[in-house]
Design a protein around this nucleic acid. Sequence first.
DNA 1: TTTCAAATCCAACAAAAGTTCCAGACAAGC
DNA 2: GCTTGTCTGGAACTTTTGTTGGATTTGAAA
Lengths: 247, 247
Amino acid sequence: MNDLAIDWNAVPYFAGLNAAARRRIMDAARLHHYQAGAVIFNEGDPCAGLFIIQNGMVRLYRANAEGRLHTLSLLRPPSTFNEVAAVDGGANPFNATAVTAAAAYVIAHSALLNLMASERTLLANLLQALAHLNRDYLERLEDMTFRTIPSRLAKLFLREAAYDGQICEIPSQLTQEEIAAILGTTREVVGRAMRMLLNAGLLRKQGRAVYVVDQAGLAYLAETNTLRNPPLNRCPLSVEDSQSEPG
Amino acid sequence: MNDLAIDWNAVPYFAGLNAAARRRIMDAARLHHYQAGAVIFNEGDPCAGLFIIQNGMVRLYRANAEGRLHTLSLLRPPSTFNEVAAVDGGANPFNATAVTAAAAYVIAHSALLNLMASERTLLANLLQALAHLNRDYLERLEDMTFRTIPSRLAKLFLREAAYDGQICEIPSQLTQEEIAAILGTTREVVGRAMRMLLNAGLLRKQGRAVYVVDQAGLAYLAETNTLRNPPLNRCPLSVEDSQSEPG
DNA sequence: TTTCAAATCCAACAAAAGTTCCAGACAAGC
DNA sequence: GCTTGTCTGGAACTTTTGTTGGATTTGAAA
């Protein structure tokens, strides 16, 4: 396996550090390897440190007593994770597993404390990173509070799809099971929601691949939790589509 | 109104600062007053700065298009809020209103940047505060993902109640409407959940006040989303309570 | 090709949550 | 006392989500 480092400047909070600082950080990091499916750490276990993904894919998730999963993130290089525990030294706040074979640099809590004490830029950068993380979680919280599952699914497609004019393909090969874990629901419900988006004309399917047809329609659904009758190929006059409101 | 400062050491990230540093921070802070019901700032508006509550009660909330509210926090002195926007200078991530007449010290983003640049202890403390905030949101996310509403209500009672041996009273005078906003649901649903907890013997009511009767039962419900048949005054032998599992 | 396992589709049902509506209870003020 | 507005209790109903089970498709391996 190659131990070539990723571009450490691609990590938001390592950017802008001088060469000496970056060297000290790299010296504090240890490269760990994980087989596909291997557990990296578990929720509640003592702080595993800060992780910088070198290669492979990592899943962060939480699980409830009945075994249902909530996938918080699917991460690739140069993503990092477990900043919260690495900073405060508390227990890991979620589980982490290697989806594919993976490698990651790990900086222990104590080592990070030393680095932060000597490198004020790193400290400031980490603060910005945590603020950003916080906004991210706040948005997820809003999704879970206010959005229906078709709406969350629409949002996922909008985010995941590689935009290419009007017609977009969903890039990642996510199974419905995996999508369900991301949305915090079950496979069957995702299947239903998918069918709804398909025969509402927002998505189109070819074989197993799914394409985004109506980006604006997905956005409308994500915002309002309701379908907007697609005015795509319809004559805008005289149709009305039983949408007339009596009141 | 009295402008006596709260004990600034009670604010987690002002603790441990020397006198000079604390003076510079206080110099950067401006006291603002708000009438009951007044808007402090709105979600999406440009960064309003860092707030340190002096007196009164403040509500942080989000709202969706249909006008449903999600109360993120109800805060009293010496709580602080809007750290995220104050640190990264971005838009406010939620709405803030004064529940009662209130006053708060405000430190603008630019002023906070200066302070953080000169006071490394403040920087380090803010980092810890954001890490803590992050854990808090992660737990809320889990609540919304995995817990039923009776379960969330049970958790709320466990947290809000002032523990006093076995029987505990819920201290804050929350209406069902306010509880609903905290749990992210509607008043009627809270009412139903409340009735369920009452006739399951977990809570008791006297007039309008609600008392916690079975703390362990509430915890069980919060953990498992299911009621545990109360083995309180029952003989532990020979009852079985139709709990026998055929498989 | 055949075969198999995984992924999907689909219907029917159960449970949870949201909605609508109205009747009482209670407290504050007249 | 009475009135008014807020809060609560509770039924009936709809929608959404979760669950179960079987049929079908798909892709890769044998």
